[in-house]
Amino acid sequence: MEERLNQLRASAMERLAAATSPEDLRAVDRDFVGKQGSLSELLASVPSLDPKDRPIVGKGANLLKRDILAEIDKRKGELEAAEIDAQRSGSDFDGTLPAAAATRGSLHPLTLVRREVESIFVSMGYEVLDGPEVELDYYNFQALNIPADHPAREMQDTFYCDREGKLVMRTQTSPVQIRAMERLKPPFRVICPGRVFRNEEPDATHEHTFHQVEGLVVGEDITVGHLSGVLKGFLRQLFQKDIEVRLRPGYFPFVEPGFELDVRCPFCTEGCRTCKNTRWIEFCGCGIVHPKVLSAGGIDPESWTGFAFGFGLDRLVMLRYGIDDLRHFMGGDLRFLEQF
């Protein structure tokens, strides 16, 4: 009988070693351990054995059953591990197949850069204001120290909305300066991004509709030094590098002294197309708020001083993304927009 047990063991272990699937393991289980299995048959025959052999066979059979079950478990684990190993292979994977089409929309590039500009100023304690695009002549010109006969009115090629010249498409975001002064108590810091209009034929570098960002700071002792400090701080954030600026005389009726602020070209060290080989890029007009403008806004120019600046957003966006034609911005062409 002992020989029979050894045979069964050898046969079971051989089949288990050769098993390649869970079915094979189940078959071994059925053929040896199952109700009709060889071991069960052997155990069923125990009562008919010589009493001397009974414990040997019973014990041996149970031992064998335990070993077979253990081996099945072990082989099961091995087969599962082998299966996972097989899954791990990448041979059936084509990494060059296209991804499923993602549906995504886009934000206008002017929105993207405008948000950057806004968050930098908000982080420096500025409030973001809005103002009307169809504006009273009073806010667009008069209150900004541009009286009726001032040549600046012609310089700026205004769209007029009535024959009396009382209503205009705002030519600049500066009217919001007056609106801010009327509404806020100094000291304050505001910016106003928005669209402005000039009566110009559109081409690659001109548009009759474009975008500016106005800034105004009013406080007790605001100086020229603050103006360059603030704009430099802003530009450093925007271009993410230390950037040199310079102030030079510039004429705007609503500031005195008035400046042009140039930025050291962030794109080159030797001169390039963007800076027209001058190493400087004209960035914005700015200055100390004219006392007449403070008065028009209801602020006493003896007690308070301030600075104001205004820069073109479109140009910043063009610089940022290398866009060479201003007309894309208002053109509404998806082939342009969907890139952003």
Partner: peptide, 14 residues
């Protein structure tokens, strides 16, 4: 709107 809804933002003339 520019996310899952897949709309594209435009700026058109006034």
């Amino acid at each position: 709107l520019s996310g899952g809804a897949a709309f594209h933002e435009v700026l058109s003339y006034s």
